[in-house]
């Protein structure tokens, strides 16, 4: 019985590895976002039922990209991955705003064979055209090939903010802050704009969750929608970390044989008391 339980637990753990479980939310938790030059930040990264709760799985750091204020890439220090969260340190040696991002992109296929759901590639493996040709039957039923492009980002500024690291790439869904991303204060309305492939993304639903879910009786997610210019505004009520997320599904896949595309952008920002 004991062994069975162990096996079961192991099977569950494997099944729940990252990239899985869309019900879980990915998050980054920076120790601070407003610092002087030369300071260190430490960042936790995980997926969990609600942002900042360490109750599910560590985030893989393979696709961690840290961009310095001059646009160059910085390597994390002391990166480690535990059961419930990964963590790493970054020294802010340049004046300006750093972008810390987990960038995932890939293609996946789902189909049915004799009533059974199939998928390719297997978890943790990369999509290849050869693998796809080999694994997916030419006449697969209900075949859906989806390209996914997701970014999970947070920011920290040493000294005076700048926006070199924040420049949109023009690919997928991206957030543009209309004030400094590290100048967010209670009592000051903050404005943002979502871009889809570099153009204003209208009518996109944005979910916003404040830190401290564990200590209130409900998640209290704020749900907003971008206007015709892709913009939305938030009037912060309490200081703390906020998780903001949006996604768009369309037919604009760029990698064959994918037809559908899902692009998501999640940002963690810090709101201070004035």
């Amino acid at each position: 019985m004991k062994i069975t339980m162990k096996k079961l637990a192991l099977a569950l753990a494997v099944a729940a590895l990252p990239f899985a479980a869309s019900a879980h939310k990915g998050w980054l938790e920076p120790s601070k976002t407003v610092l002087s030059v030369g300071q260190w930040i430490t960042v936790d990264a995980a997926t969990s039922t609600d942002p900042f709760l360490k109750d599910h799985n560590a985030m893989r750091l393979d696709n961690l990209v840290i961009t310095a204020p001059d646009g160059s890439k910085v390597q994390p220090e002391n990166a480690s991955t535990g059961k419930l969260r990964s963590s790493f340190d970054v020294q802010l040696n340049q004046a300006g705003t750093y972008k810390v991002a987990i960038v995932n992109s890939g293609v996946s296929a789902r189909w049915e064979e004799k009533g059974q759901r199939k998928s390719y590639p297997p978890r943790g493996q990369a999509f290849t055209a050869e693998g796809f040709a080999k694994e997916v039957p030419a006449n697969a039923e209900k075949l859906a090939v989806t390209e996914s492009l997701t970014q999970l980002v947070t920011f920290a500024t040493a000294g005076k903010p700048n926006d070199t690291a924040l420049k949109p790439t023009g690919v997928g869904l991206e957030l543009v802050p209309l004030q400094s991303i590290t100048d967010l204060y209670v009592g000051e309305e903050a404005k943002f704009q979502f871009l889809l492939d570099g153009k204003p993304a209208a009518d996109v639903e944005v979910e916003i969750i404040a830190d401290g879910v564990r200590y209130r009786s409900s998640v209290d997610a704020l749900e907003l929608k971008t206007d015709k210019d892709g913009k939305f505004a938030i009037d912060w009520k309490t200081p703390g970390l906020y998780w903001m997320s949006a996604s768009v599904s369309d037919e604009k896949a760029t990698t064959a044989p994918a037809k559908q595309r899902r692009t998501a952008y999640t940002a963690v920002v810090e709101v201070l008391s004035p």
């Binding site: 407003v34 610092l35 002087s36 030369g38 300071q39 500024t157 000294g159 005076k160 100048d183 201070l272 008391s273 004035p274």
Partner: peptide, 17 residues
């Protein structure tokens, strides 16, 4: 200088420059 940003308004308005 590590703790200068703790004077938040000053840091925001002028200190960080």
């Amino acid at each position: 200088t590590k703790w200068l940003p703790d004077m938040r308004q000053w840091w925001r308005r002028t200190g960080r420059e």
